[in-house]
Amino acid sequence: MNVSLSKRGDYVLRAAIALAKAHSKGQARKLREIVDEMGVPATFAPQVLSDLVRVNLVTSKAGKNGGFRLVRSPDSISLLQVIEAGEGPLHSDYCALGEGPCHWSSLCPLHDYWSKAISQMKLELNKVSLAQVSSCDVALEEGRVVVPKDSHRLRNKGDFAHGITLDVDGGR
């Protein structure tokens, strides 16, 4: 089972990280800056940013001094909010053992367990702030984080060296 973000969810998160980095400076970010910095395709960037605007995480202003900016501090925006902006609400549309939704008349034996797993995932994603993710991104860029041994980066390179993750969120 793949629990990776879709391309849209990935790009929404990248755009949010770029905006979080600029938040402390009080700067609005231009579309082209976000595209260049975060590798979001220019043709897809307006849709991605409109997802963040639609859920009131980002505001936009046209013009020379305009751009995109977070509506509030990245400390007060959860990773869950950002992910759901791009992916939609985190839930299971179908029964884990069948083709349609579970019904009380024909409830599957996994229903409670599956529902609890999804709830736990939401709780964990809600505990992480956009500020923490942005801080980790900066630490990665600066080489202050050792890539963990189970990283996709290492797997793709065929390098299974043991690594550790440093505390980059200040012990939050």
Rank of each mutant, 00 (worst) to 15 (best):
S4R: 14
K7G: 10
R8L: 09
R8I: 01
L13D: 03
L13M: 05
A16I: 04
A16F: 03
A16V: 00
L19T: 07
K21N: 01
A22D: 10
H23G: 01
H23V: 02
K25S: 11
K25Q: 13
A28C: 13
R29N: 12
L31G: 02
L31S: 00
R32S: 15
R32M: 15
E33W: 10
E33R: 05
I34Y: 04
I34M: 05
V35Q: 05
P41F: 01
P41H: 02
T43R: 13
T43D: 06
T43L: 09
A45Q: 03
S50K: 12
S50F: 12
S50W: 12
D51H: 07
R54S: 14
N56P: 08
V58Q: 01
T59F: 10
S60W: 13
K61L: 14
A62M: 08
A62N: 09
K64D: 05
N65K: 12
N65L: 11
G66Y: 08
G66V: 04
G66T: 06
G67E: 01
R69L: 10
L70D: 00
V71P: 05
R72P: 04
D75A: 14
S76V: 02
I77M: 02
L79A: 06
Q81V: 06
V82L: 12
V82Y: 12
I83M: 03
E84A: 10
G86R: 08
E87V: 04
H91D: 12
S92A: 15
Y94P: 00
C95G: 04
C95P: 01
C95D: 06
A96G: 13
A96Y: 14
L97F: 08
E99Y: 06
G100S: 13
H103P: 00
H103F: 06
H103V: 05
S106Y: 09
L107F: 09
C108D: 02
P109D: 08
L110I: 03
H111F: 03
H111Y: 07
Y113G: 14
K116E: 15
K116I: 11
S119D: 11
Q120S: 12
M121W: 00
M121C: 06
L123D: 11
L125T: 02
K127T: 08
A131R: 06
A131N: 03
Q132D: 15
V138D: 14
L140G: 10
E141C: 14
E141L: 15
R144L: 15
V146L: 12
K149V: 11
K149M: 13
D150C: 10
S151H: 07
H152V: 12
R153A: 12
R155E: 07
R155C: 03
R155F: 09
R155I: 08
A161E: 02
A161W: 02
H162S: 11
I164P: 00
I164A: 02
D167C: 04
G170T: 08
G170N: 10
